[in-house]
Design a protein around this nucleic acid. Structure first.
Lengths: 67, 67
DNA sequence: TCTAAAAGTAATGTATAGTTGTCATTGTGT
DNA sequence: ACACAATGACAACTATACATTACTTTTAGA
């Protein structure tokens, strides 16, 4: 299982899903679905988020134990 | 465009695509296709590779300019 | 409290990640 | 030169990321 703290990062920058989506180049639903762990983004998306939030991918996304 | 140095990392550990694939839990063709930039792996796969190679995702995968 | 923005959710469609299987090519040791 | 391991490549299939549209629910501010 993979988790992420996109919601937190977004709160730090106080930016909406909508705005983030536009910057990254995906839909608001895509951002929403990632935040809610409904799907696993591509590495390109992860790198773009990493770039935007100025944090390494590994600090935004991480694997959880128990498979 | 995204690039990666999986081939180099693999050479450092002197491990075959086959072996790496088995460890990560994908097929040899998947590893091969990623190395040859034929497709973009999921963030989970990137994190597993990051874990195995003991290097941050951003040091294995990176965005290239010119789109 | 009323309202509008923000976030959650769901259906359907499309693109593409990843599998399975198979064959061709390159490299390396003997 | 021969054999075999490692890699590249391709076709057909399945699973799922992500788009689009649209509707509901939650949250924050006047």
């Amino acid at each position: 299982m993979m988790k992420n703290n996109l919601k937190v990062e977004r709160a730090i920058k106080s930016i909406t899903q909508q705005e983030l989506a536009k910057i990254i180049g995906v839909t608001r639903q895509a951002i929403n679905s990632i935040e809610l762990n409904k799907f696993v983004p591509s590495t390109i998306l992860a790198l773009k988020l990493s770039e935007f939030f100025n944090k390494p991918v590994n600090e935004i996304f991480f694997l959880e134990e128990t498979d």
